[in-house]
Amino acid sequence: MSNNIILISGNELRRLFKSPLAWIIFSVVQFLVAIFFYMPLMTYLQPDSVASGLTNNVVSTMYGFAAYIILVISPLLTMRLFAEERQLGTIKLLFSSPISITELVLGKFFGIVIFYILIIAMITLMPASLLFGATLDLGQILSSIIGLCLLATTLVAIGLFFSSLTTSPVIAAVNTYGILFLLLLIKIAASNSSERTAEIFTYLSLDKHYDNFLNGIFNTIDLFYYITLSVFFICLCIWRLDIERVYK
C-alpha cells in the first residue's frame, strides 16, 4: 500500500523538478517573501519604531504574506495532477496498473505536499538567520510553520479534487481559484450578517484560522478545520475517480 503511494508521489516530484515550473516557483516565492521579510525588518530596526517584538513584527508578517503567495501559486501546481494525466492518456496506464485509486490520489497529494514543505523550509531559512544575532519566540515560529503547512495541505487537497473533474488543466485552475477566493472572502459576508451567521462565515474562512497560528495560538479547532477540509476534498477526489470508470 504505502510503496505505491511513495512511488506515485516520487514520480510526481520528479516530473515537477524536471520542468522549469518547480524551480521558477521556488525562486519567485523566495524572492517575494524575502521582500516582505526585509521591509518589516528595516522598519523594526528604525530607532523610533513602535514594535511589539521581533517575532511578531517581522517573522509573523513574513509568514502571513507567504500564505497569500502560496494561495496564488497553488492552483498552478495542482491543476495538472489529474487533468494532465487525462490529456496525455497516462491515466489509462494508472487505471490498468495494480494500484488502488486511494493510493493514486494519496500519492499525488503527498507529492505536492512534500514540494510545499520544501518551499516552507526554504522560507524558514530567513527568520532562522536572525537567530545568529537575536532571540526569537521559537514557539510562535513553530506554530506559524505548522499553520502554513496545514494551509498548504488544504490548498493541495482542494486543487487535487478540481483537477480530477476535468481534462483541461486551465479549467481545473480556474475552478480552484474560484473556491479558494470564496473561502478567503467569505469573512466579508460575515460583517453584514447576524451574529450567528457571522460566526459560521468566520469559521469557514480560510485565513482566519491561519491568523491564530501566526499569533502562536495552537487551537484544536483550527487544526480540525484544515484537516476536515483536506480529508473532505481527498475523499471527494477518490469518489470522483471511482465513478469515472462507470459514468464516463
Binding site: 516530473r15 520542468s19 492518456g89 497516462t90 489509462k92 490498468s96 495494480p98
Partner: peptide
Amino acid sequence: AKKNIGFLPEQLPLYYDL
C-alpha cells in the same frame, strides 16, 4: 487481476518529459 495485464491504449500513455 491487473498484475496479469499489459495494456497499450490507442492514445499512447507516455510522459513526454521523461
